[in-house]
């Protein structure tokens, strides 16, 4: 059974249909990639899944549950995490604080216990810290732990955002252009991590990506989007040889 389904999903901004009747299924444990020219509606689709935007038609289903009308803050708790195309980190906080915020959906403590910093709060914090340290190990962020985000180079911020998403222990991870702004070496590392995220942690990945090299290396399935509509879905090779995809990229 598909872990995630989109059925005839649409959204309009004024008279522009940014996403228009999009339907697809994602199988658990796979990397599903969306490609498409600038302005195709890829990020908008992510914002619909994160519930930052309301759909004007269609349904979104995660693990058999209709999430089309849930509030945005309940999405993380279900097991969907994301990164942002232009980074949405907490800039004036440390890497550690950012990653601990990744644990927010798993926090249980209440205000009174926190004000008194009871033993239960300390224990919970330590448990979250252990999880965060696992992610720090995985993505090699040790030396940045106590750095403020504003003092970090772009490439590192990109990794911190991935780390923050992983800290929430998602089942479905949305990555919006994970390689943009990275050099070749960093992109190679990213490909390696995406493989590991799928194979070692069994996390399903939904990714938007422009770098075809990366797309070919990691994708199990590719969807091509143009003007908010699905052109085709298939393997990376199939999609790239589709005539409409070629014209879309050549600016037809």
């Amino acid at each position: 059974m598909a872990i995630f389904q989109a059925r005839d999903v649409a959204i309009k901004f004024g008279r522009i249909s940014a996403v228009d009747g999009v339907t697809f299924d994602i199988e658990p444990g796979t990397v599903f990639t969306i490609i498409g020219p600038n302005g195709a509606g890829k990020t908008t689709l992510f914002n619909l899944i994160s519930r930052l935007y309301d759909t004007s038609a269609g349904t979104l289903t995660f693990e058999g549950r209709d999430i089309t009308n849930l509030p945005a803050h309940s999405i993380a708790g279900l097991g969907i995490a994301r990164t942002f195309q232009n980074l949405e980190l907490f800039d004036h906080a440390t890497v550690l604080q950012n990653l601990l915020l990744g644990r927010h959906a798993h926090t249980r403590s209440n205000l009174v216990a926190e004000l008194l910093f009871l033993g239960s709060v300390r224990r919970e914090e330590l448990a979250h810290r252990e999880k965060v340290e696992e992610v720090i190990d995985f993505l090699n962020l040790h030396k940045y732990r106590d750095s403020m985000i504003v003092n970090l180079p772009y490439g590192v911020r990109k990794v911190v955002e991935l780390a923050r998403a992983l800290c929430s222990e998602p089942k479905l991870l949305l990555l919006d252009e994970p390689s943009s702004g990275l050099n070749t070496e960093e992109t190679g590392e990213m490909a390696f991590w995406i493989h590991d995220i799928r194979d070692r942690y069994g996390i399903t990945v939904l990714m938007v990506e422009h770098d075809m090299g990366l797309v070919n290396r990691v994708s199990d399935k590719v969807l091509a989007l143009n003007y908010g509509r699905v052109i085709t879905i298939g393997t990376a090779a199939q999609v790239q040889s589709h005539p409409e995809v070629i014209t879309a990229y050549l600016g037809g």
Binding site: S50, H73, S74, G77, E88, L89, F90, D91, L101, R164
Partner: peptide, 12 residues
Amino acid sequence: RDSETAAQALGV
């Protein structure tokens, strides 16, 4: 304070 968008996406 730093990003309402990211905060929401993390369950805040």
